[in-house]
Structures are given as C-alpha cells and as structure tokens.
Amino acid sequence: MKKLNDATIEAKLLQFPDWDYFDGAIHTEFEFENFKDCFSAMSRIAFECEALNHHPDWSNVYNILKISLSTHDAGGVTDNDFKLAEAIAYIVEPEE
C-alpha cells in the first residue's frame, strides 16, 4: 500500500469532517452516552478491522473513544486508512 501525500490526505478528509490529520495519521474522537455504548461500538469496529486486516491505534476512557489511523508498513496514511475510517463512520453514525 502506497503512502498518500499531504494534499491527497487533506482532499480525502473533506469527506470525513469529524477527522483531522496530524502527526502522520488521521484522528477522530467520539463521545457516547455511556461506557456500554462506547464499548459496543468498539466491538463492532473490531470486527470490521479484522475483516479489513487493518487495525487502529485507539483508546477508551468511559464514554470517549479516540482513534488514530495510519499504515505502519507504509509509514503514513494510505487508502486503507480511509477505508477503515469510512467503515467506522458507518458504525458510529449518530442516530437522529
């Protein structure tokens, strides 16, 4: 997988308004109503990560989930990171 340049990353991020690019990765943070909802989303994301064979750097404190995506083998952000970001957005899509 080829590392994307900064301009390409910034252009792709226009489709992901809840994500930011810094320190060689794309980052987002989600706040849930409670720990159970947060952990449930993490579990669903984990299945998608396994299906894509691509895994995030993430952390969870109570109802907050922080996610950073980069492709370590490529040394930066690749299309795989945006595929996973899209899957995460679908899983965590806010209910209206």
Rank of each mutant, 00 (worst) to 15 (best):
M1C: 11
M1A: 14
M1V: 09
K3M: 05
K3W: 02
L4Q: 01
L4S: 08
N5E: 14
N5P: 11
A7R: 08
A7N: 12
I9E: 09
K12H: 07
K12V: 03
K12W: 02
K12G: 07
L13K: 04
L13V: 02
L14W: 10
F16R: 06
F16K: 09
P17D: 05
P17H: 06
W19Y: 06
W19G: 00
W19N: 05
D20F: 08
D20Q: 15
Y21E: 07
Y21G: 07
D23P: 00
D23N: 15
G24E: 06
G24H: 03
A25T: 05
I26N: 08
I26T: 03
I26D: 06
T28G: 10
F30P: 01
E31L: 08
F32M: 09
F32H: 10
F32Y: 11
E33R: 15
E33H: 14
F35D: 13
K36D: 13
D37W: 08
C38N: 11
C38M: 06
C38S: 11
F39P: 13
S40I: 00
S40A: 10
S40G: 10
S40Y: 09
S40D: 10
S40L: 06
A41G: 08
S43E: 09
S43N: 14
S43G: 09
R44A: 04
R44W: 02
R44N: 03
R44E: 04
I45P: 06
A46L: 05
A46F: 01
A46Y: 01
F47N: 13
F47K: 11
E48R: 12
E48A: 13
C49E: 09
C49K: 04
C49S: 13
C49W: 00
E50W: 05
E50I: 03
A51S: 14
H54I: 01
H54Q: 01
H54G: 01
H55N: 05
H55I: 04
P56L: 01
P56E: 02
D57L: 03
S59L: 00
S59W: 08
S59R: 09
S59V: 01
N60C: 06
N60R: 07
V61C: 13
Y62S: 14
N63I: 00
I64S: 15
I64L: 12
L65V: 00
L65E: 06
K66I: 02
K66N: 15
I67D: 04
T71H: 05
T71Y: 03
H72P: 03
H72M: 05
D73P: 14
D73H: 14
A74S: 15
G75Y: 01
G75P: 10
G75Q: 04
G75R: 03
G76K: 00
V77W: 02
T78Y: 02
D79R: 12
D79E: 14
D79F: 04
N80F: 05
N80L: 08
D81R: 02
F82E: 14
K83H: 13
K83I: 09
A85E: 07
A85F: 03
A85K: 07
A87C: 12
A89Q: 13
Y90F: 13
Y90D: 11
I91H: 05
I91G: 06
I91C: 07
E93I: 00
E93N: 11
E93V: 04
E93H: 12
P94T: 01
P94C: 10
E95Y: 14
E95D: 15
E96I: 00
